[in-house]
Amino acid sequence: MKKKYTFGWDQGVSVFLVLTVVVGGFISEYFATIDNISFVIQDVAEIAIIALAMTYLIIAGEIDLSVASILSLTSATVGFLFRNGTSFEVAIVGGLLVGLLCGLLNGYLVTVIGLPSLAVTIGTLALFRGLCYALLGNEPVNELPENWIVLGYENIPGTFLPWSAIPLAILAAIAWIVLHYTRIGRWTFAIGINPEAAKFSGIPVARMKLGLFAMTGLMSGVAGVVYTLRFASASPDGAVGYELSVIAAVLFGGVAIAGGIGTLWGVLAAVLSLGAIRSVLQLIDFSANALLVVSGALLLISVVAPKAIEIYQSRRNSAFVTK
């Protein structure tokens, strides 16, 4: 029953995405141009990459509010290492490693110590952000190597796609296959539906959750590298508040906050929808504030609509029974 309905929701979001694009095309002739599509993809890349991992985490019944801070800490680490004389390649590897470690710390606190992830990741949100300032002080690192930062603003030669589309596409494909076609994906759903039952059926629940947190950290790290290249700068105060955008996108994509339900396709459609809406609003000179209101409203709709359908169906069913 429940499964049937989520199937409908991610399709609904996909339809919504198509509608947004079509309506956007009518509203502004610039919207459907190649340049703008490239811009939208670049604009949502970081949020999309983190959302891939967050989808797993929320399906497994956990949450991570520290992702934006991990993103920023990765960026700060890259900047810090580079400023202190390591090569940029090594600095990136170092940044990704830090992202992974951050995720492992979250996972350790949740699975080994047994703390609620909401509280833990509010704590690490502050901790990781604080470490950004400890690393960089108030001075952003702006002198990054030119041959790297072109990746942040140029398109892949011969296409209209930004470079960030490559990691996004590869990671999305992997995340999609793993979530819906492998044992790890099925375990993730099983843990979210009922962790006790999952444990007793032999699923290594703690190890899985630890892995999911670590993966979320690493993905935030990847997003951090993309972010650094896009803005050609490593600053301690980047991406503040991104965690809420990521979570809003994942939930709007049909993932249930209680865990156990969701599809990766729905989340990707949701991320792109939000990006497209943002672009349309910018093109028609609507204030950025409207996007906040729209994001919030979509988030509420994503929980109210299923509830309304459920109530409607149960009324209809009970009417049928009493007849």
């Binding site: 939930l251 919030g296 509420l300």
Partner: peptide, 27 residues
Amino acid sequence: FMVAYLRLPSLVVTLGTLYIVRGLFNE
């Protein structure tokens, strides 16, 4: 209303109203 009577998760509901109120405020 949404949390108590519609029984929706408060984390999601209040995240939504966080955005909406902030957006209206900025406007």
